[in-house]
């Protein structure tokens, strides 16, 4: 693992930002295509891109280019767009502000000092991140519900390979959501003295847990892993729906 990390470090500085650009763009295009063109449900599986909107009927007056999942998708999208980790990633990769830290890379920064505002101008809006966090708690709750739905189906209990996808996904999404810096702040980072306040001890313990999840690049790791798990889970759904592969049942009904 550390050998890979070391090898990664030795690559030219532009490899990392370019990879980020590629992956995020690909993800964006894929999810856009999915929510505009496809359905969200197949048998007991509900695409994590759709969640509860999978079965939603939009009233007739809504223009056709708006599909149901869009009513939901602004939450995870906004959550990730304002996430401290993704902010770092896109400032570096898309805006080159700076693209990397070596002096050679920093010299490539396109913005002139007069035009650099950091998070003081437009991006000051990123400070609303905590509200997206609140909203995301609901999304996470639904995703848990839908993961359980894949095993406790209307027809009875079963475990198939698909369920594993759904559970791995929601675990990663939860790890990402609850390692959020804003959550870390709200649960305990904003307190100066735990022992001076009632309930402080509990909050300190949760804070420590969140910190452990968050630290040493943890949050960035969850950010990427949960992104890939979303993608793979949805692809899996498309594949079984299209009959490309069979959903292999591990423990059948009533078993």
């Amino acid at each position: 693992m550390s050998a890979i990390a070391a090898a990664w470090k030795r690559l030219p500085w532009w490899v990392e930002p370019m990879t980020v650009v590629f992956v995020l763009t690909a993800f964006g295009l894929y999810s856009f295509a999915v929510i505009v063109l496809y359905q969200g449900q197949y048998e007991q599986y509900i695409s994590p891109f759709f969640s509860f909107t999978a079965t939603m009927e939009l009233p007739g007056w809504v223009p056709g280019f708006i599909t149901a999942p869009m009513l939901l998708l602004w939450i995870p999208l906004g959550f990730r767009a304002t996430c401290y980790y993704y902010r770092k990633a896109y400032y570096r990769a898309f805006f080159w502000d700076p693209p990397a830290c070596q002096s050679k890379a920093q010299q490539r920064e396109p913005r002139s000092p007069e035009n650099y505002n950091g998070e003081r101008a437009l991006f000051v809006l990123n400070n609303v991140h905590r509200y997206f966090f609140y909203a995301s708690i609901f999304v996470v709750a639904f995703l848990w519900y839908e993961a359980f739905y894949t095993v406790f189906t209307p027809d009875g209990f079963q475990i198939a390979v698909g369920s594993l996808f759904w559970f791995v996904n929601i675990i990663l999404v939860s790890a990402y959501t609850f390692s959020c810096h804003s959550f870390r702040h709200l649960i305990g980072g904003n307190m100066d003295c735990y022992s001076c306040n009632r309930g402080g001890n509990i909050r300190r313990k949760i804070y420590s847990g969140v910190s452990r999840l968050n630290e040493n690049g943890g949050h960035a790791r969850w950010a990427w892993l949960s992104l890939f798990s979303l993608l793979l889970t949805d692809i899996y759904l498309r594949f079984i729906a299209a009959g490309v592969i069979q959903d292999y049942v591990l423990i059948p009904f009533g078993g």
């Binding site: 902010r87 770092k88 570096r92 950091g118 003081r120 991006f123 810096h181 980072g189 630290e215």
Partner: peptide, 30 residues
């Protein structure tokens, strides 16, 4: 607000302070 949390500072700190995660972001939150 000028800091855009791009973490170069964290990368170079010789005593391993996680400057961005543990100092800057908590202050930004405050």
């Amino acid at each position: 607000g000028y800091c855009n949390i791009t973490k170069c500072c964290t990368e170079v700190c010789p005593v391993g302070i996680k400057i961005t995660d543990n100092s800057i972001i908590p202050l930004k939150e405050r």
